[in-house]
Amino acid sequence: MPDFRPQSNPKLSRRRAIGGAVAGTLGAAAAASLPRAQAAPARAQQSAPSGTYRIDLHAHFLPPDYRAALLEHGHLTIGGYPTPDWSPEQALAFMDYYGIQAQALSVSDPGVSFLSGKEAADMARYCNTYAAQLFRTHPTRFGAFAVLPMPDLVASIAEATYALDELHLDGVILLSAYNGVYLGDPRFEPLMVALNQRNAYVFVHPAAIPVNAEPKLPLPDFLAEFTFDTTRAATMMMVTGMTQRYPNIRFQLAHAGGTLPFLSHRVSVASQTVLGDLWPQDLPKPSILDTKRQIGNFYYDTALSGSVAAMAATLAVTERNHIVFGSDWPFSALTLPRSGSHDPAPGLSDIFDADQRMEVERHNPLRQLPRLAEAVNA
């Protein structure tokens, strides 16, 4: 089968080996301590649909100048994962092999925030223009979410306006935090106004924690910390009322919402505890039912989360029509099935039948991206 793994980097081999060993140890320990019958309802694996039908809403791209800039500024890894090669040809080969009809491409962490001022704005424009040209060349294979020169709000609003109104990109990607300031913070309000006016689809992707705040653990960020950062962002967006004030924005949370589904009850009861007495006067005090509604309104992708444990938790807080397919390629290259299977997420068949997988992997994503849906179904 084709090898979609990134090229090796000798300087990173030891780190990758340590990360892989730790991940393997954790997985083995979990399997030993949690019998399958206790972890999830017993169910025979269902058959997946056949053909090239999937629509991938969590797929990354690294245009040549962007990747070169990352490496030049010392970003040899992203979230602890070796910065991969990427090309349209590699992406098409990956999609063809794994039955993916189209990908909505996005720039992963750190976005363009490793640059500043005009450099950041120019790099965002370069990435967004590159993406627009790509889906015009391959209209049925690619869509894109615009990267913004955050945390510069004036430049970000200008770029969002251009990318959505002129380039007709399918949405926007925002990181969970910028310089340690999480989505939901009032300083991001002007951008949310602009996105709400455009009924924007916003993909929320985790960001690396600033070095001075990062726990000293021998684990790559993508393994666990990324999931926690998505949870922090989603929680902040709810408790500050952002998700209530801007109902026209549809937010997709990466990796099945991080840990949000598991923590949904704890988050929802916050206002009923002593925190409720300290709630700011100028913010709406959420009720348990309203917080549950807000959690259910998020969209959750399956990237690195195609398992009964992750999907059962997600289905406990939202309807199936709020789950969308994501591959996380090329950052997921090392985790893809290596047995010759053309199914990028066989674990989804442990909880979804063929019709349900078709809903999650095709119909739900296309409902959210009308431009891409029109191109794909033309």
Rank of each mutant, 00 (worst) to 15 (best):
C127K: 11
V274P: 02
F203S: 14
W329T: 13
L164S: 00
W279A: 09
V317Q: 10
S8H: 01
G20F: 05
D109G: 02
R338E: 00
R198D: 02
P41I: 09
G184H: 09
H205P: 14
K292N: 08
S8N: 00
T52C: 12
P49K: 01
V308Y: 00
W329E: 02
D165T: 01
R141Q: 03
L372M: 15
A21M: 11
L195D: 11
Q294F: 08
Y182T: 00
P2W: 00
R187Q: 15
L153F: 02
F325G: 10
L348Q: 01
G171L: 11
D109W: 07
P247D: 06
V181C: 11
A23C: 05
A37V: 12
R232V: 02
L71A: 07
G111Y: 11
P35F: 07
D85T: 09
Q244T: 15
Q45Y: 09
M95I: 02
R141N: 05
M242C: 04
R320V: 00
I18M: 03
A224F: 09
S47C: 06
A316F: 00
A37Y: 08
A207M: 14
Y66G: 05
K285M: 12
F325H: 06
L34E: 12
P139C: 10
P149A: 03
I100W: 13
L12Q: 10
P149W: 08
R15K: 06
R362A: 07
L169E: 00
G347Q: 08
L34V: 13
P280R: 02
I78Y: 09
S116P: 08
D56C: 00
M311Y: 14
H73Y: 08
Q103E: 14
G340R: 06
N248Q: 15
T318E: 04
P41N: 07
R43C: 07
A333D: 10
